[in-house]
Computed example of a mutant assay.
Amino acid sequence: MKEKRIYQCEDSLEGIFSAVYIAWASRYGHDNIELEVLGMEEEYNLKLFSEYIIVKNNPENASKVANSIKKKISHHAYQMVVRAVLSNDKRKANAIYHFLVRGFAFGSKVEDHLSDPYVQIIFELNRYVGNDAHLYTGFVRFTELDNGILFAKIEPKNNVLEIITPHFADRLSQENFMILDVKRKIATVHKSNSAWILTTISEEELATLLSVTEKKERYERLWKTFFESIAIKERENKTCQRNHVAMHYRKYMTEFMDDSEHKSDALRGKLGRNQEEV
């Protein structure tokens, strides 16, 4: 019995595709190969009888994998894989590899093999990321900075920033705005009547962006006052509210800021109130 080969890669499309290329080219046998994203593997839980190989990013190899998926499987399968990469699920790299193994064998019909566990995971991750992105299009809150730029902060579980930005670019086409993913230190920047770009943020830039301006504070107080003024106390239903807006999404929503009830609920959430998860 062969020992397992576990290829570890960067958490990115280029990183996972680079690992797919190397693993496939090894001809070691697909059943003997696993892929892991560095940083997502279980710490201090190395598998016995396994060889660990770290794969460096290779843009050329990653491009070959991307082109092969589009030509030999389908463009839709490629989009599904890309969305799966954006998830925070530690199974994603391995699921993508084995999904592609089946895809290169069956072509576009691989999507019909819903009983296959790896195909199931890819569909599951697509729904997971898609649902997260959909919710954030309604939960993002912009603040107008002193220079007139609209600024929003998010900390999504999945890397949905690139998915949600076109939604706001379409609706705020004449505005200059930035959406910052605090957790991943990336941001999308949109210039009025122009295209948007994705950029990485340095620690210094992050500290500057997170600093609260006087104008921002006024905006947040105004929004919270409005939110409270339209609420009828007798009709408040905190449980229903939590079911519609889970605690995870409230951190940067101005109507929930400085809410003592929210803070106590968040504490209880840490103690195991999993019903608050969406």
Rank of each mutant, 00 (worst) to 15 (best):
L114R: 09
F49T: 10
S68V: 07
I73E: 08
R250A: 07
L100K: 04
L210T: 10
D31W: 00
F106G: 03
L180K: 02
E36I: 00
A266P: 02
S12V: 08
I96F: 02
V160T: 10
N158Y: 00
K183V: 06
M247N: 14
A246C: 14
G138T: 05
L48K: 12
L210S: 11
L135S: 06
L46I: 12
A93T: 09
I6M: 07
H75M: 07
N126R: 00
I96P: 01
L46F: 15
K263E: 15
I69M: 03
N243E: 13
Q174F: 05
Y7R: 04
I6C: 04
D265T: 12
E51K: 13
Y136H: 11
E34W: 03
I96K: 03
N158H: 09
N274V: 11
S192H: 02
S202C: 09
E236K: 14
C9Y: 01
N176F: 00
D181H: 01
V110F: 04
K215L: 14
E144H: 04
C240F: 14
K64W: 03
I164P: 00
K263H: 13
W196I: 07
N45I: 09
G269A: 12
D265S: 13
S87R: 01
T239I: 15
F17P: 08
I179D: 07
D116E: 12
A133Y: 01
K238L: 14
L48D: 15
A195V: 11
N94D: 15
M1S: 14
A77V: 00
V101R: 03
I73H: 05
L222G: 08
H98M: 03
N243R: 12
A169L: 05
L198M: 15
T254M: 14
K153Q: 14
M253I: 04
G103T: 06
E276V: 05
N32C: 09
K191L: 08
V245P: 09
K251E: 15
E10A: 14
F226D: 10
N57E: 15
Y52K: 11
L125P: 04
K183I: 03
S202G: 07
I53M: 05
P117Y: 04
N94I: 04
F104H: 04
I232G: 07
K224N: 11
Y118N: 13
A19Y: 00
R218Q: 15
L161F: 00
H167W: 09
R184T: 13
E234Q: 13
N57W: 02
W24I: 10
Q8G: 06
L161V: 07
